[in-house]
Design a protein around this nucleic acid. Structure first.
Lengths: 204, 204
DNA sequence: CAAGATTTTGACCATTTGGTCGAAAGTTTT
DNA sequence: AAAACTTTCGACCAAATGGTCAAAATCTTG
């Protein structure tokens, strides 16, 4: 096993990108290898030279997404100011939603379907991560620095609201008249989300 | 055209229920007529005697869902207390999420895919409904009865958080250790959501 | 209960699609 | 530039699946 060639790297990347796009908008079963290969600029047999099967493509891109999806949650600093920490985290997640909407939708699509592939990951790594962060939040609550709310539900709410802007983009565009494409929309949305969530958890 | 017989009504209902279940967990393309027919307790040709095609089944159940999904938003009373009105609405949506998770997920799946079927509905009826309710919310804000937040984003946040409990059930179950099946979980979730959202919009 | 209408289904067809194969085209190495 | 290796793809296959049809079974009604 030698290092992958330049062609290998380029093609694998092109396939992954095309796959995220196709899987996220058509769903696992709706996406076809042909369409992914087309979008990646190669023939179907050529694509299958790089990935052995459709399912492996799916697993591969899903794993990549999960890794980058997870990273920002890991950085909650228990010694910092809770409201500012949450502001930073929410802002980051809003930006991720705006930057990689396909990735968000692919993850959503997998979970919607009952997370057949990610179930194990969710039950182990994500679970312990959430428990970990919930402890930090609970510590802040115990110190009176945060209003008393169930920390796990707070985490769910942050995920729900931030990811909503990517996952339900079609609905948001329809209702706002495609405002979400305009520059500044994301800032406006972040404003609103931050205002409500942070006021919602500020101790009173 | 005479009235549908008892058999017609029963079978159409059984098919619709099976279809919601299949479409919501497998997606449009992943669901098969065979599986829907099986779940509805009949053969595939028999199912196709009641619905001419897969797409018509899909459209039919989606329309039913949209109608019931829409109804609770219509009842915001501008003369009532804003926080209490929002509490009522959020509670109702949380209950809907818990009662009809499949329906919620089917709707989510359609919007995730770019709302190919519902686009028109979202751009017309839902849009004007949102504009309508946003006006009511803005009125409350102008009266100082609600914190100044963009009303449209507030509506999005309510949808996001409440539907999250149905749409991401797999993730929530994984992270909480299948707590969501236990009685009382929905009350606890409602508590947290209400606490954060209502405190978030209460004027200060 | 018999005639007519409705409901049900086994057998079948056409298309789509995931995946294979062998040979051709292109690259890299010696 | 020849050998060796990597990459590409046309042609093909088998399974899955949406949908048809004619005949059988069942139900309704005069």
């Amino acid at each position: 096993m030698s290092k992958p060639s330049r062609i290998q790297l380029e093609n694998r990347a092109a396939i992954a990108e095309a796959a995220v796009s196709e899987f996220s908008s058509r769903g696992y079963h709706g996406a076809t290898i042909d369409a992914i290969a087309d979008k990646a600029g190669m023939s179907k047999p050529n694509l299958l030279y790089y990935f052995p099967s459709k399912e492996v493509i799916y697993r591969t891109v899903l794993e990549q997404i999960v890794e980058e999806w997870l990273s920002p949650l890991m950085t909650l600093d228990p010694t910092a100011d809770p409201v500012e920490e949450l502001r930073r985290y929410i802002t980051l997640k809003m930006r991720m939603s705006a930057d990689r909407p396909h990735a968000s939708r692919l993850f959503a699509s997998e979970v919607l379907a009952g997370a057949p592939i990610l179930k194990d990951f969710l039950e182990t790594r994500l679970k312990s991560l959430v428990e970990d962060k919930a402890t930090i939040l609970q510590g802040w609550i115990d110190d009176g620095k945060l209003a008393p709310v169930d920390p796990v539900h707070l985490i769910f709410m942050i995920w729900a609201t931030t990811q909503h802007y990517a996952d339900f983009e079609a609905q948001i565009d329809a209702v706002t008249g495609a405002q979400s494409k305009k520059p500044g929309f994301n800032e406006q949305a972040s404003q609103a989300v931050l205002s409500i969530l942070l006021n919602g958890v500020r101790p009173r």
